[in-house]
Design a protein around this nucleic acid. Structure first.
Length: 855
DNA sequence: GCAAGGTC
């Protein structure tokens, strides 16, 4: 029997599609990568019986990168990134997706592609085709082999229709994505590397290891800085309003609004005030009552969920999506990444609603709707990706923790609100004359709270109705006064407003918007203030102003859409892929060269905001007493000064000192630093306080964590010591965890250094001990960087005895022998006790042998 | 170490 392989974009979709197409009669097994499942059933295809095999990828199979040697920042001029070769690498090596697809494609006759119906999905179609090419029974480029299903909703009707009307994958659309990937890579990396290198190390108080540029993140930052500039350049202006207070016949005082609203000229306002003051009565000239409605919401999509999460729940979009993802995998809500705001035609609204009728939180509102009949949901937009976000299962407050519950609560209430009635009220406006000047006041009466019963935060304030004014009625003017006001600047952009701006300008997608916002926070360009307002930091401001000075287009939100327009020409087959790509790359290369040539313009702004390294007091580490940053005084003798506690701390005098990941000493909460004489020299992490005030009796002044005998601290000798030194008498070879990725073991007494496991992702000292007496070591590599036998990603072994590890280990003597202050001094030449000078026996015979081998 | 886009 022939076999038809079908591939969806994500595991959840493969499961839904398989259920629909097999009428719930498929058999499911797990794939070898543990992430994707395979669903199988028998059916007919093109008039023959076939075995259907439905599985999925997890997003993109491949991702684009430069070929290896261009990833060396030291040896590559960033301008080369506009022309250097690129290659496709596995997007997630751990998933082994190409191998998985090839295996499942073995012996298959047809390939039916069920990827999402957008350009990215079309691109993944071709990634899948490349992966199965060679495994299938027939060539994938044979016209009869590959088919594309086009569906606009995950409903039985739509999916079965798609299956009956298969088409061919669209290569132009796929190519437009290839072009987008290449442009983003070349442009982003070239600018990022250049500006990082240019500014890095130039300014002392520039707290950034990476100064990134990107076609989405930079305009996103641009929005925040633009608002900042509006606030900065705002000059308040005085204006005057006239308030008239009337006393109604039933004795209530009501403040009327002036129909001219305000005057920016005080004299004019005073003149009107004089005219009005002559009159003691206000005459009702018009009373209008209208029924108004506050509309129930349309069905919920991702962007709206993120907006509400930020403005209503105080959750970052990034965090909100992480929670939503978890609610989804636990079956509480539907797929949370969708642009669609229209329920599919046959969506089980009633069933979904009934599921919520016993909720102690909103069950009353649900039962009321069930009793009176659901209202038809408002028309939204069906983008054809996934149905709107809805609850799938009833949860109670006890089932979910804090923020998770609050997000679920919102999703449920929003869903219920879409099936409720609009909120209806009567709005009354009464107009008055006082002399010749018009005034008015408003009131409202609630008729039907509708959906605001369940979305109670949107409820109208209780009745604020007006007394029953009648045309021609006269009321007493109690008081007329002039009030001086000032125009006020806008506030910083809220995250929710930023999301709206990004969506409007096509910056990012529903899935990537939270990532871009998260990025500009991580890079120290903006800080999230109260009310989740985005306040640009000096670095963010200086960058945006710099681009504006050199080439404003670089930060313009329209730049992304201009590029997208070019890409669409490829997608629609109106322009040649190579031509568009070359043309656009060339434009950006010229922009890049112009930027490099004029970087001085941006540098002037940096100079004004940051202090040059030479005179700066860099922020390295926080004081454990007051938690404030201490000043790093770089003039010799180098020291730290906590101006708040009025304390100074001595530091090692030679070599480099840098923060060590904001890790803290468990004894005194001071942030740790890392001292190093370069990659070939000695190094260790140390606590600025312990360095000056040794915490234990067996520790001397001027020592690092590698001499600290704290029983459990992860930075101390007990956690990182490997074995007695192979050369000196009392030293211990200790792993320096701050030396990554040029990992080393250093003796905490003498100059012995063992370089090992370069580029490993993680190296730790194991609790187990080898027969030779030394601690075992765990090493982990990223797959693509693995230097272990058989490209293994992790291994545990002995540095001295494990044959597999020995090629990755080399011993040296530190290149510089200047000891940190307070360390054991040695004679000139520093070799006094080294190399077994006094003929002391080595800790273990075996180690002595190996020591000889290393030397 | 870099982009943006999928998804986990």
């Amino acid at each position: 029997m022939k076999v038809a392989l079908m591939v969806a974009e994500k595991p959840s979709l493969a499961a839904s599609l398989a259920n629909i197409l097999s009428n719930n009669k498929c058999h499911t097994r797990k794939g070898f990568n543990q992430s994707c499942s395979i669903h199988e059933w028998s059916g007919t295809f093109r008039g023959e019986s076939v075995q259907f095999r439905m599985t999925s990828v997890c997003g993109h199979v491949m991702s684009l990168d430069f070929i290896g040697k261009y990833n060396n920042w030291d040896r590559v001029d960033p301008v080369e990134l506009f022309s250097c070769p690129t290659e496709k690498k596995e997007a997630t090596p751990k998933l082994k997706m190409p191998a998985f697809l090839a295996q499942e494609a073995k012996g298959c006759d047809y390939l039916i592609l069920w990827l999402d119906c957008d350009k990215e999905g079309e691109n993944i179609c071709f990634e899948v085709m490349n992966a199965v090419q060679g495994s299938m029974r027939r060539d994938v480029y044979n016209l009869d082999t590959v088919y594309r299903a086009k569906f606009s909703a995950i409903t039985e009707k739509d999916i079965k229709a798609a299956m009956a009307n298969l088409v061919k994958p669209n290569e132009n659309e796929a190519k437009s994505v290839d072009a987008r990937q290449e442009l983003d890579l070349r442009i982003g990396c070239a600018f990022t590397r250049f500006q990082t290198r240019f500014f890095q190390g130039k300014y002392g108080d520039l707290d950034a290891s990476l100064i990134s540029y990107g076609p989405c993140q930079t305009p996103t930052l641009g929005f925040c800085v633009q608002r900042h500039d509006e606030i900065q350049t705002f000059t308040p202006e005085a204006y005057w309003i006239i308030q008239a207070i009337i006393r109604t016949n039933d004795g209530r005082d009501i403040t009327l609004d002036w129909e001219r609203v305000r005057s920016f000229d005080k004299e004019v306002a005073v003149m009107f005030l004089q005219l009005i003051k002559e009159h003691k009565k206000a005459i009702v000239v018009n009373v209008v009552t209208k029924e108004k409605a506050k509309s129930r919401p349309i069905a919920l999509n991702t962007v709206e969920l993120m907006r509400v999460a930020s403005s209503g729940l105080g959750l970052s979009p990034h965090h909100a999506m992480q929670i939503a993802e978890r609610l989804y995998t636990q079956g509480y809500i539907s797929y949370p990444r969708t642009e669609t705001t229209q329920y599919p035609e046959n969506f089980d609204l009633l069933g979904t609603l009934k599921m919520q009728q016993n909720s102690p939180e909103w069950g009353t509102e649900v039962r009321e709707i069930l009793a009176n009949g659901m209202n038809k949901p408002k028309k939204g937009q069906d983008v054809g990706d996934h149905p709107p976000i809805t609850p799938m299962r009833l949860a109670s407050r006890d089932d979910l923790d804090g923020d998770t519950w609050r997000l679920y609560d919102y999703i449920c209430r929003h869903f219920i609100a879409t099936l409720s009635r609009d909120c209806k009220y009567l709005s009354t406006t009464a107009t008055f004359f006082i002399g010749d000047e018009k005034f008015s006041c408003n009131g409202h009466t609630l008729l039907d709270p509708g959906y605001t019963g369940v979305m109670h935060w949107q409820a109208l304030s209780k009745n604020e109705s007006l007394p029953p004014f009648e045309d021609g009625e006269q009321v007493t003017v109690q008081e007329v006064k002039l009030v001086e006001c000032h125009t006020s600047p806008p506030d910083y952009l809220t995250e929710s407003e930023l999301i709206t701006l990004m969506e409007k300008h096509g910056i990012g997608t529903d899935a990537s918007i939270p990532v871009h916002i998260h990025n500009i926070c991580l890079r120290n360009y903006v800080t999230v203030g109260s009310g989740r307002r985005l306040i640009p930091n000096s670095l963010g401001i200086v960058l945006v102003h710099g681009y504006q000075k050199i080439d404003p287009q670089l930060v313009l939100p329209t730049m992304r859409s201009a590029v997208e327009e070019q890409l669409n020409l490829i997608a629609h087959g109106k322009a040649d892929y190579v031509a568009v790509l070359q043309h656009t790359v060339e434009i950006f290369k010229l922009k890049f060269l112009y930027f490099v040539k004029n970087i001085e313009g941006m540098d002037q702004l940096f100079e004004a905001s940051f202090s040059p390294l030479a005179t700066a007091s860099k922020l390295l580490s926080r004081c454990g007493m007051c938690r404030r940053y201490m000043k790093f005084i770089q003039m010799k003798p180098m020291r730290l000064l906590c101006s708040h506690c009025d304390e100074t701390y001595n530091l090692p005098q030679n070599g480099n000192i840098r923060p060590y990941k904001e890790l803290k000493c468990p004894l005194d909460e001071f942030e740790l630093l890392s001292w190093s004489m370069g990659t070939k020299g000695k190094s260790y992490p140390f606590c600025p306080y312990c360095y000056n005030h040794p915490p234990f009796r067996d520790m001397r002044k001027g020592q690092g964590c590698n001499s600290c005998t704290h029983p459990t601290c992860p930075h101390g000798l007990n956690s990182n010591g490997v074995c007695a030194c192979i050369e000196c008498e009392n030293g211990v070879l200790t792993l320096d965890p701050s030396s990554a990725p040029k990992w080393k073991l250093t003796c905490n007494r003498c100059d012995v250094i063992i370089h090992l496991f370069e580029d490993a992702q993680k190296v730790t000292v194991d609790e187990a001990t080898c027969d030779c007496g030394s601690q075992m070591i765990n090493v982990e590599y990223k797959q693509e960087k693995s230097k272990l036998p058989g490209e293994a990603t992790d291994m545990t072994g002995c540095v001295f005895c494990s044959v597999e590890l020995s090629p990755l280990i080399e011993k040296h003597r530190a290149v510089a022998t200047v000891r940190p202050r307070g360390g054991a001094s040695r004679g000139r030449g520093g070799r006094g006790r080294g190399r077994g000078g006094r003929g002391k026996p080595k800790p273990k015979d075996k180690m002595a042998q190996l020591a000889a081998y290393f030397v």
